Computed example of a mutant assay.
Amino acid sequence: MARVLRWVLLVAASVAVTVPLTLAGVPSAGLFAALAVGVVLALTALAPAGVPRPAGVVAQGVLGVYIGTMVQHDAFGALGSDWPFVVAIAVATLLLSVFAGALLGLHRDVTPLTGSLALTAGGASGLVAIARDLGGDDRVVSVVQYLRVALVTASMPLVVSFVYHPDTSHPASGVTPSAPAPWYLSVGMLVVLVVVGAAGGRLLRLPGAGLLGPMALTVVLQLTGLSFGLSVPAVLVQVSYFVIGWQAGLAFTAASLRAIARILPAALALIVVLGVSTAGLGVVLAHYTALTPLEGYLATSPGGVYAVLATAVETGSNVTFIIAAQVLRVLLMLFASPLLARAVVWAGRRFSGHKPAMTPASSAPIRVAD
């Protein structure tokens, strides 16, 4: 009975915190709320023992399909002949992220892999979901990733207003979504994509197969026009956010919280450096394409996709190009960062010896399937 009451308290508190965060426009509010509530209940000994492994795998798959539906059938066509520059900028952003993560990994409380995942500039919720699968500490990854998203989102209006001085008298039209499929068709496709994607990803030894397998299949369906208007029901997205947030939050201890507090100054400094660096990449992108400096900044922003879209519409910018560039960045980060993060770990072990994980809880990664 006590176990049931703990779960009821966890769910009720998470929902209660999610509602105001959603109204305030916080990105992935459910994940952030579940993380915060999980931390509080774990530190007060009122939390359940942990999230069952199958629930974590299913949540990853649902989130993978949800991210995959961001890709529109003709989205990348909007890049036109400028696509090589956009790809080059995205790769440069990835390398900057991994380098910043390697610097964070020099801290005694962070492994190189955890540092790389924590500072990867894109796909915050997805990286939190697969951090433990890859052997990283999802507590550190979740805190630093959401610090990055919060700083980028909060600073964007100030940067746009004081640096670019945009003309907001002629707003652009937003991206017109395609007609969604009936809910029963979407749910049926979702189940198939999660099961087949996770199983296929595991057979192919894909890092983070629970998330990346279903996401890869969904992207293929979107690009080939065979998704039939697939959309993930909002309630399933929220439940997945909750599960992923709880998975990280319930693992917190007083010791791990103190360790994370010690790394926050370094993480904050590296996030600022990463933001300034990507803004510089935006200047380069604008120079070699037909984009304005503002559009270059928005296309290369290291996070805050929803804030980017709103700003692009409000300022009359090239919305289709900017969103295509942002989606490409997120997909590249999610697919490539696990491989590069592992390369960082290999290099660290080879040249400086293996450093143990921050806490014992992060040294036993959850497998994609038992």
Rank of each mutant, 00 (worst) to 15 (best):
M70G: 05
M70I: 05
V71W: 11
Q72R: 03
H73P: 07
H73I: 06
D74K: 05
A75P: 15
F76A: 03
F76C: 12
F76G: 15
A78R: 14
L79Q: 15
G80V: 15
W83C: 02
P84F: 10
V86C: 13
I89S: 12
I89H: 03
I89N: 00
A92E: 10
T93K: 02
T93V: 11
L94A: 04
L94P: 00
L96I: 11
V98F: 05
F99W: 13
A102K: 12
A102D: 15
L103I: 14
L103D: 07
L104C: 14
G105T: 06
G105S: 14
H107Y: 03
H107M: 08
R108G: 06
D109V: 05
V110I: 07
V110S: 02
V110G: 11
L113F: 11
L113W: 01
T114E: 05
T114Q: 03
T114L: 09
G115Q: 08
S116W: 04
S116L: 13
L117W: 14
L117Y: 08
L119W: 10
L119S: 06
L119V: 04
L119E: 01
T120S: 15
T120R: 05
T120F: 09
G122Y: 01
G122D: 01
A124T: 02
S125K: 04
S125T: 06
S125A: 09
L127E: 11
V128L: 10
I130W: 01
D133V: 09
D133T: 02
D133M: 02
D133Y: 04
L134C: 13
G135C: 12
G135V: 01
G136P: 09
D137E: 08
R139F: 14
V140W: 04
V140E: 06
V141S: 04
V144C: 14
Q145W: 05
L147E: 07
L147F: 11
L147I: 02
L147P: 02
R148N: 12
R148V: 14
R148K: 12
R148Q: 09
V149D: 00
A150Q: 11
L151H: 03
V152Q: 00
T153W: 05
A154H: 02
S155M: 10
S155T: 12
M156I: 05
P157I: 02
P157M: 14
V159A: 10
